[in-house]
């Protein structure tokens, strides 16, 4: 079983998911077995405004542990990440980074803000 621990910068309680990568996909959006797929398939929200198509960066996550257990980023993901605010050396797009290893121990942080979001204190 692989383990994915999710820390939310927004302060929501952290979540731990145990899953078998070979059973992916867990739902429809993002690459099968991606961080987004695992989270949504286990009822943990992660924003994915472009439907998991590598076109928005709202699924940006920072990998704290297990970076080398993720699929390598393709040029498309690098092109998008280049423009993600709050980019770190271990940033990935949740919809593109696939957890391949059956005994992977991954820890990610979901940052508070990502690019191109219109966030407001209240509805307009």
């Amino acid at each position: 079983m692989a383990r994915l621990r999710v820390i939310f910068e927004s302060g929501e309680p952290e979540r731990v998911i145990e899953f078998s990568p070979s059973q992916a996909p867990f739902q429809h959006d993002g690459r099968p077995g991606s961080i987004l797929d695992v989270l949504l398939g286990h009822g943990v929200p992660l924003e994915h405004a472009c439907g998991g198509n590598c076109a928005c960066t709202t699924c940006h996550v920072i990998v704290k542990q297990g970076f080398d257990k993720l699929s390598e980023a393709e040029e498309r993901e690098e092109d998008m990440l280049d423009r993600a605010p709050g980019l770190t050396p271990t940033s990935r797009l949740g919809c593109q980074a696939v957890i391949e290893d059956d005994d992977a121990e991954i820890v990610i942080v979901v940052p508070r803000y990502t690019i191109n979001q219109q966030v407001a204190d209240s509805r307009s």
């Binding site: 405004a49 472009c50 076109a55 928005c56 960066t57 423009r83 191109n116 979001q117 219109q118």
Partner: peptide, 8 residues
């Protein structure tokens, strides 16, 4: 809907 989004 939410948005806008996208870097293209």
């Amino acid at each position: 809907f939410t948005g806008p989004f996208g870097l293209f």
